[in-house]
Design a protein around this nucleic acid. Structure first.
Length: 423
RNA sequence: GGAGAGGUCGCAUAGUCUGGUCUAGUGCGCACGCUUGGAAAGCGUGUAUCCCGUAAGGGAUCGGGGGUUCGAAUCCCUCCCUCUCCGCCA
């Protein structure tokens, strides 16, 4: 959510931001109008409430019963007007909230203009894509041959896009998760195990609602929603708090499954474990002082890249253009791992600075100086990394001509073996 | 799931029965000042958040929402949460 003050003071910045994203900017005028109505209504309402407060006290003190009754009658009239204004105010505020919740964040000046993902910019490519042999196998063939992935039984249990990791597959994913958690912890993040089911409020805080309602799973009877990413509970964890300035930045890393009710187009990404309704992810998250978030973004990017480097996976860094930016983000880098078997780049991480967008929704603030007014913190999030796709990258990059898979050195201790062979 | 007790301005509590003197008292903690060679103690002052307003000032918030009333921390309804006991359970 953007600051309502920005709509008053510099609406042009918002319009330009919306246009860069390729969105209609007319909502800005709607919001400005509602804001004026709200303030006019509030001013009159509060003046009347002030009258009522004073008069009610006078009534309490009044000894003459005729005078007392006259005041009570007068207050009845005032109260009728108050009721009308209260109704207007609550309608106006509801409309204002609804509109504000639909406005995406403003792209940073550093973000290149562009209409969609085709105009994202490759910033660098790291590692060699050279392969030792001509036809590397895709992970679905490797996984089946080595007893790491069971597609049929996953589909039998849960339907299309579900799979079972078995034996070395399951173990390798677990080794990756533990490796990533330990890795980020050693670099200054605090490990967190959050709820995987949260109240609706948390999804508003993180900016998932109202816009992405169709992508969320929820309990029919109770206020329970499955998290689509650990970003949701991590954002909501400090909702409504005023964080101690000396505790900033706060840096968290969390492993969670992620549940997404995507309507996946038939025929696209159907093979393998690249895309599903359930997947695992290790997420990095930071709360920072506003002035610190640009540097925090760069260091989070470095943290994501370091995982890929430690695993020895070739990757590239993309800067998203304005038209491909996520709803709450001001600036985003994607990390894409090279998967030689599929022959494609796989998005394994998306690293963003959300500015004060989520902090304002969730009410996360800090006090810069003792006695100073509170300010919203900035929040940043990034995958560190997404599991099934990192698993794919490991399998496909480390496959050998004899059909086995070498276990990356960084994972050997946790995995408990150097190589994955059939049988 | 059942029964009971609770949720008050950092923490702990008073106030709720008997609605107006609650612009919410007190203790602790914290900050500043006095005092002191320095400190402790003592004394004094201050110490929530948000909204409207250039300001003066005003308003809102006693877990959330709704109601009764001229007026609600206080009465009524409802939801949420916490604690104790019972049941169930990994």
């Amino acid at each position: 959510m953007l600051d309502i003050a920005l709509f008053r003071d510099d609406a042009e910045v918002i319009r330009r931001g919306l246009e860069r994203r390729g969105e209609d900017a007319s909502i800005v005028d709607t919001i400005r109008l509602l804001d004026v109505t709200r303030r006019e209504t509030l001013t009159e309402l509060e003046a009347l409430r002030a009258t009522r407060n004073t008069e009610s006290k006078a009534i309490g003190r009044a000894s003459d019963s005729a005078e007392r009754q006259a005041k009570i009658d007068a207050m009845r009239v005032v109260n009728e007007r108050i009721a009308v204004l209260e109704a207007t105010l609550s309608q106006t505020e509801a409309a204002l909230d609804e509109a504000l919740n639909l406005v995406p964040n403003i792209p940073s000046d550093l973000v290149p203009d562009g209409a969609d993902e085709r105009e994202n910019v490759v910033i660098r490519e790291v590692g060699s894509r050279e392969s030792d042999f001509d036809e590397p196998l895709p992970h679905w063939e490797l996984g089946t041959a080595l007893g790491m992935i069971d597609f049929e039984r996953g589909v039998r249990m849960s339907g299309s896009r579900f799979y079972v990791l078995t034996g070395a597959g399951s173990r390798l994913q677990r080794a990756l998760i533990q490796f990533m958690l330990d890795f980020h912890t050693s670099r200054g993040y605090t490990e967190v195990y959050p709820p995987f089911i949260v109240a609706e409020k948390c999804l508003w805080d993180a900016g998932q609602l109202p816009k992405f309602k169709d992508n969320l799973y929820r309990d029919v009877e109770e206020d329970f929603w499955l998290v689509p990413t650990a970003e949701v509970p991590l954002t909501a964890m400090h909702a409504g708090e005023i964080l101690a300035a000396e505790d900033l930045p706060r840096q968290y890393v969390a492993y969670t499954p992620c549940f997404r009710r995507e309507k996946m187009s038939a025929g696209r990404d159907v093979r393998g474990i690249k895309r599903g309704h359930q997947f695992d992810k290790v997420e990095m998250y930071k709360f920072t002082r506003p002035e610190d978030s640009p540097a925090a973004l760069e260091s989070m990017l470095a943290d994501g890249e370091a995982v890929l480097q430690a695993l020895g996976i070739p990757y590239r860094v993309l800067q998203l253009c304005s038209g491909d930016l996520g709803f709450g983000s001001t600036i985003t880098y994607d990390l894409e791992a090279w998967a030689p078997g599929c022959g494609e780049w796989l998005e394994v991480s998306s690293i963003s600075d959300f500015g004060s967008f989520q902090a304002r929704r969730a009410g996360v603030r800090f006090r810069p100086e003792p006695g100073a007014p509170t300010e919203h913190v900035h929040t940043l999030n990034g995958s560190g990394l997404g599991l099934p796709r990192t698993l794919i990258a490991v399998m496909e990059n480390y496959q050998q001509p004899d059909g086995s898979i070498i276990v990356p050195e960084a994972l050997r201790g946790r995995f408990g073996a150097d190589v994955i062979k059939a049988g």
